[in-house]
Design a protein around this nucleic acid. Structure first.
Length: 139
DNA sequence: GCCAACGTTGGC
DNA sequence: GCCAACGTTGGC
């Protein structure tokens, strides 16, 4: 079975990975960027999603899993926006910093570096696995 | 807190 | 449909 890999960003003081763990699941709401929305719509149930803390932390801290594919964003008052539901999958043994990602061979083209403002992005399998390895975590 | 990069809006 | 102006994101 083919699986897609993704990375989402969240400001930890707004919604952290620990909060996702505490809640058990979360609707990924509020995306108002077309590229990010289209990425949400391409997510399939079971896909794994790296969870990155932006603004504070600046590190990948955990893995989430898509448990509900896209549906209309109930928080959108107008426009054509989507959400997915995510559940916590695993916390990384060791957080992987943006600095280390930038310094890693093979991660030079990762969306996180090339397009730092995009909040939902696809990852190559090799990129996903490289970050897991840096995080000393196996799936 | 600054500012660069990018996306969106709106006048023409 | 172009492009200038503006707003937002997010690293530093």
């Amino acid at each position: 079975m083919y699986m897609n890999y993704w990375l989402v960003k969240s400001e930890p003081f707004v919604f952290s990975f620990d909060q996702l763990v505490a809640d058990g699941r979360s609707m990924w709401e509020g995306v108002r960027n077309y590229q990010a929305r289209n990425n949400l719509r391409a997510m399939r149930a079971g896909d794994l999603v790296l969870f990155y803390h932006s603004n504070e932390g600046l590190e990948v801290v955990g893995i989430a899993q898509v448990i509900e594919e896209h549906y209309p964003d109930p928080t959108a008052e107008k426009g054509d926006w989507s959400v997915v539901d995510l559940a916590p999958y695993r916390k990384l043994e060791k957080a992987v910093s943006l600095k280390d990602i930038k310094a890693a061979p093979g991660l030079q083209n990762i969306g996180l570096v090339r397009n730092p403002r995009l909040s939902v992005m696809p990852l190559e399998e090799a990129e996903f696995l490289a970050i897991l390895e840096m995080g000393e975590t196996e799936i």
